[in-house]
Amino acid sequence: MTDPDQNARLKSLDARISAAKKARAPEKSHQETHYSQANLAWRMVTELVAGLGIGFGIGFGLDTLLGTTPWLMLVFIFFGLAAGVQTMLRTAKEIGKRQQAPGAGKDGDDDGD
Rank of each mutant, 00 (worst) to 15 (best):
T68C: 03
Q86Y: 13
K11A: 04
A19Q: 12
R98M: 02
S12C: 02
G112F: 05
G59C: 01
M44V: 03
K106W: 04
R90H: 09
T2Y: 01
A82I: 10
G53L: 05
D107V: 09
E32G: 05
D113E: 11
T2S: 07
K93Q: 07
A8F: 11
M73N: 14
W42N: 03
D113V: 05
I17M: 06
G53D: 04
D109K: 11
H30P: 00
G80Q: 12
E94P: 00
Q100H: 07
I54V: 15
G53F: 01
M1N: 13
G57V: 01
T64G: 01
K28P: 00
V45D: 01
R24Q: 15
G53H: 03
S12Q: 11
Q37A: 14
L52Q: 02
Q86N: 05
F79A: 15
P26D: 01
A104Y: 03
Q37R: 15
G96H: 07
Q100V: 00
G112S: 06
Y35L: 10
T2Q: 08
D63C: 06
A23I: 10
A92N: 06
V75Q: 01
I58D: 04
A20S: 13
R98T: 03
V45E: 03
A15K: 14
T91R: 13
E47D: 07
M44T: 06
E32Q: 15
P102R: 12
H34Q: 05
T46A: 13
I95K: 08
L66S: 08
S12H: 08
Q100L: 07
F76L: 12
R24Y: 10
D111Y: 13
G67P: 11
A19G: 09
L52F: 02
P26E: 03
I58Y: 02
D3V: 10
T91P: 01
G84W: 02
Q99E: 13
E94S: 15
D109R: 12
G55T: 04
R90W: 04
P4F: 01
A23H: 11
H34Y: 03
G80H: 11
G96S: 14
T91M: 04
Q86P: 00
E32Y: 12
Q31T: 14
K97V: 03
D110E: 11
M73R: 15
I95Q: 10
A82L: 10
P26N: 09
G112A: 04
D5F: 01
R90Y: 05
E94Q: 14
D110K: 11
D113A: 06
P102T: 11
K28N: 04
N39S: 08
L74T: 09
D14N: 14
A50E: 07
Q31S: 14
F78A: 14
F78H: 05
L40R: 09
D111T: 08
L74D: 06
A19E: 14
L81P: 00
Q31P: 00
A38M: 08
V49C: 10
Y35R: 13
F78T: 09
